[in-house]
Simulated scan of single mutants.
Amino acid sequence: MIGRFLSLEGGEGAGKSTQVRALAAALEARGFPVRVTREPGGSEGAEAIRGLLMQGDVARWSAHAETLLFAAARADHVEKVIRPATEAGIWVITDRYIDSTRAYQGAAGGIDDAAILALHGFGARGLLPDRTFVLDLPIDEGARRAAARDGALADRFAMRGEHFHAEVARGFRAFAQVEPDRFRVIDATQPADRVTADLLAGLADLLP
């Protein structure tokens, strides 16, 4: 059995974590072995870096430093979790991957996309998902959902302003336009079960 690598992307409050679990359950019901993971994190080393990235003041790290930390976490994640799983025939679904760095530190943070991809080529050996889903949601609705979810426990990225998150959203849409074979944009304003159905429909060409 061929393992596949899927990523779910999107702004704050888009429902990525919920849909990762729902998609995993739907694939398992069809008989596929599935491994759910996340970024930053997913491996022991990457989870240690996650604490550095997600906690503290918004200005704790510059966009350059964040990019390097994400690249280090991702290198460990790919080496220890993603590649071994897919090589063993497992479908890996990650909540965020390289395109989040491209959107947050790149499109919104000002880091050159080519530099981010060069780091990815070195650290993660350029591994890209077989399919990337962008859960698209208006900024104000995402902020409302994230606030309801996190309350006073919002992380360093959720606490950033509306302009930052608008740039993140524009970044994701731009990536999807450039790479239509890899990306599928999903309307995340729909009921959760409809979003899951659209995710499955977006995998039709990868399913045996």
Rank of each mutant, 00 (worst) to 15 (best):
residue 100 S to R: 05
residue 129 P to K: 08
residue 86 T to E: 05
residue 165 H to M: 07
residue 88 A to C: 08
residue 79 E to T: 12
residue 106 G to C: 15
residue 108 A to Y: 10
residue 154 A to C: 05
residue 120 H to M: 06
residue 155 D to Q: 01
residue 141 E to D: 13
residue 115 A to T: 14
residue 151 G to F: 08
residue 102 R to H: 03
residue 163 H to A: 11
residue 116 I to S: 08
residue 95 D to Q: 03
residue 101 T to F: 05
residue 137 L to C: 02
residue 95 D to I: 10
residue 151 G to N: 05
residue 123 G to H: 06
residue 154 A to P: 07
residue 133 F to D: 01
residue 123 G to D: 01
residue 146 A to V: 13
residue 85 A to W: 08
residue 87 E to W: 10
residue 155 D to C: 03
residue 104 Y to P: 04
residue 98 I to A: 15
residue 163 H to L: 14
residue 82 I to S: 12
residue 77 H to C: 06
residue 123 G to C: 13
residue 129 P to S: 07
residue 144 R to A: 13
residue 84 P to W: 07
residue 155 D to V: 02
residue 79 E to F: 09
residue 150 D to G: 07
residue 105 Q to W: 03
residue 77 H to A: 11
residue 108 A to H: 13
residue 109 G to C: 07
residue 152 A to I: 05
residue 87 E to S: 14
residue 162 E to Q: 12
residue 85 A to L: 12
residue 116 I to C: 10
residue 159 M to F: 03
residue 145 R to W: 01
residue 130 D to K: 11
residue 105 Q to P: 04
residue 135 L to W: 01
residue 127 L to D: 07
residue 133 F to V: 00
residue 100 S to A: 15
residue 83 R to L: 06
residue 82 I to D: 06
residue 89 G to P: 00
residue 119 L to W: 05
residue 86 T to K: 08
residue 128 L to A: 14
residue 149 R to F: 04
residue 151 G to Y: 02
residue 83 R to H: 04
residue 121 G to T: 15
residue 71 A to P: 05
residue 138 P to C: 12
residue 108 A to F: 09
residue 117 L to E: 13
residue 75 A to Q: 09
residue 158 A to I: 02
residue 114 A to L: 07
residue 91 W to Q: 00
residue 99 D to Q: 04
residue 76 D to C: 07
residue 126 G to W: 06
residue 119 L to E: 09
residue 145 R to D: 01
residue 140 D to W: 03
residue 122 F to G: 12
residue 160 R to E: 12
residue 96 R to T: 08
residue 115 A to G: 08
residue 118 A to C: 10
residue 147 A to D: 02
residue 110 G to Q: 04
residue 169 A to R: 15
residue 78 V to E: 05
residue 145 R to S: 01
residue 98 I to T: 10
residue 134 V to A: 09
residue 107 A to R: 12
residue 157 F to Q: 13
residue 89 G to C: 00
residue 162 E to L: 06
residue 129 P to Y: 04
residue 160 R to S: 04
residue 74 R to Y: 09
residue 122 F to Q: 08
residue 91 W to L: 05
residue 126 G to R: 11
residue 120 H to R: 00
residue 124 A to W: 01
residue 150 D to L: 10
residue 115 A to M: 13
residue 150 D to Q: 14
residue 163 H to T: 13
residue 158 A to W: 02
residue 117 L to A: 15
